[in-house]
Nucleic acid binder design. Structure first.
Length: 517
DNA sequence: GGACGGTGAAACTTCAGGTTGCCTC
DNA sequence: GAAGTTTCACCGTCC
């Protein structure tokens, strides 16, 4: 426990971090927000004297992770130049891997992070410095769970790297110190509670058990859930039976399962005699592992969509308006008007009906509109820096949203196949492709080539090379001029032209074009 | 006297993370 | 609730 009275710089976290370096050791600093993690890393980096030469390569790699670096990349590179890093879910995957690898090999000595690094990582940290023990929640600031503290503290002194480790809580006041000791050093970890009680989770598992044939009667379902940790904890089996019964009725109504004589049962015990069968749709929904409620919403919306004039945004907003996409981008008070204004252009083609302005769901609906607009901008070739400025979405957060959106769009594609909504298939699959590359539809033929992402495809397209025939027709010298020698030769090979191999290495003066594959 | 830059107080804003599907346009 | 950021008034310096 560090008290501010020991401070050398007026900043206890900085003091302890610098002291760790003096000892020739490495440390992790845990902070409560991404911004704090970035600022702490920057403060430590600034306090370090000496040149950045030794870490130049690492800094360059961090800048190189995206096709054009964002402000966040530049900030990270500046810190890495001094052997310090910040680490949170907003970083690009490559940057996160780079930092973790460099921490293991000694190229980075200090990482300031959010809880990203608290769970399941094994790294040579001699110290864990924990600054923020309170975090913002629905009910204002609240103390983090003891279990979370233990996870962070447990990152120090891993058996593979050190014989011992130190976990240090940095407190601002004596009162905070007392509370921290009581709560985290002397306190007991919290009880663990089953998550099965959450409706979407239970719903997903009920369908999955039926779809896989693991259970085909109410009794089998009840027997299964009775032996789970959830039932062990809550003990109220009759109530569990009632919940299951309600859930089965709902899944039946949505046509994911068939309940013979479904009107007859009144309790889970009475459905014992009946065999529940999954429908084709129900089986596929279970395989896709989405919440059956989401799947049901998709079925309903896509049914209405077949004969309507749609836009990419129609699908993007539909998938954004799901449990799986949460947490959504938040619409701030001052943006409200702007988002509503932009929404007007797509209003007629939207699949998810807009609630009234006074509906409690309106705010979340508008959030789904903003999230959909952000995805749309990405698919229209806006840069990561633009998205960071416009939506406050960092590259890592963008990637996470893109993954989820792709999964949900794939699921809606599969639903269309089963429900025979053939007219929508092409539109959805094109959109998935566009989302994957962050490119307009016109670039699709070029993106099929190996080594061509959205940046190179755009360069080619703007120079009238628009598809395989265009690549064939193009002069090799022109392609070399646009993309560099290696890529030009590779392209020509891919369209079946026999071209001469050239010497290794990058041509002098050639600009490196990267990487949306 | 005006342009400019530095400083600090006050007002304002925002707040962790991650699993799941399939392979093709 | 608090850290971090932005805004703005104020002051000193320089030309």
């Amino acid at each position: 426990m560090a008290s501010s009275t020991l401070s050398q710089t007026g900043n206890p976290v900085l003091d302890i971090a610098l002291d760790t370096l003096d000892k020739g050791k490495q440390c992790l600093v845990f902070l409560g927000t991404k911004k704090s993690a970035e600022k702490a890393a920057e403060d430590i980096a600034k306090a370090l004297k000496g040149s950045t030469e030794g870490h130049k390569d690492i800094a360059e790699k961090a800048l190189d992770a995206l096709s054009s670096p964002t402000k966040q990349c530049e900030r990270l590179a500046r810190c890495l130049g001094k052997g310090v890093a910040f680490h949170h879910a907003g970083l690009a995957q490559k940057q996160r891997e780079l930092i973790e690898e460099q921490f293991r090999t000694g190229g980075v000595s200090i990482i300031c992070c959010t809880p990203t690094l608290a769970y399941g990582v094994d790294m040579p940290a001699y110290r864990s410095i924990i600054r923020d023990l309170r975090r913002f929640s629905k009910h204002g600031m609240s103390w983090i769970p003891v279990l979370d503290y233990l996870q962070m503290a447990g990152r120090a002194g891993r058996p593979n790297y050190d014989k011992m480790g130190e976990a240090i809580i940095a407190c601002a006041t004596e009162a905070e110190e007392e509370e921290a000791v009581e709560r985290y050093i002397r306190g007991k970890p919290e009880e663990i509670y089953s998550k099965l009680a959450v409706e979407p989770v239970l719903r997903t598992h009920v369908l999955s058990l039926i779809a896989t044939g693991f259970a085909s009667t109410g009794k089998q379902l009840l027997d299964f859930f009775s032996s789970t940790f959830y039932a062990h904890q809550f003990r109220d089996i009759p109530r569990l039976g009632m919940v299951l019964e309600k859930m089965l009725a709902q899944l039946g109504e949505w046509e994911f399962i068939v309940l013979p004589g479904k009107d007859d049962f009144t309790s889970a015990y009475e459905i014992d005699e009946q065999r529940i069968r999954p429908t084709l749709l129900g089986k596929r929904v279970a395989e896709l592992y989405i919440d059956p409620l989401t799947a049901h919403t998709f079925v309903t919306r896509l049914q209405d969509a077949s004969d309507r004039r749609l836009h990419a945004f129609s699908f993007l907003q539909m998938v954004s308006h799901t449990q799986e996409m949460r947490p959504l981008l938040r619409v701030r008070a001052k943006e409200m008007e702007g988002v509503q204004q932009r929404f007007l252009a797509y209003h007629a083609s939207v699949l998810e009906p807009e609630p009234s302005l006074y509906d409690p769901d309106y705010e979340e609906y508008l959030n789904s509109v903003k999230t959909g607009l952000m995805l749309l901008d990405w698919s229209e070739e806006k840069t990561e820096e633009f998205l960071l400025k416009q939506y406050d979405v960092r590259p890592g957060e963008l990637q996470a949203k893109l993954n989820t959106a792709d999964w949900l769009l794939y699921s809606s594609e599969e639903i269309c196949k089963i429900m025979q909504f053939r007219s929508l298939l092409r539109e959805i699959s094109t959109l998935r492709f566009r989302l994957r590359y962050g490119a307009r539809e016109e670039l699709l033929p070029l993106l099929r080539f190996e080594g061509i992402g959205r940046v190179r495809a755009r360069i080619l397209f703007n120079n009238r090379v628009r598809d395989a025939a265009g690549v064939k027709a193009a002069n090799l010298a022109t392609l070399k001029h646009l993309l560099g020698e290696k890529i030009a030769l590779s392209l020509k090979k891919q369209v079946g032209e026999d071209v001469k191999e050239v010497s290794e290495g990058k041509r002098k003066g050639q600009v490196s074009l990267k990487k949306f594959e």
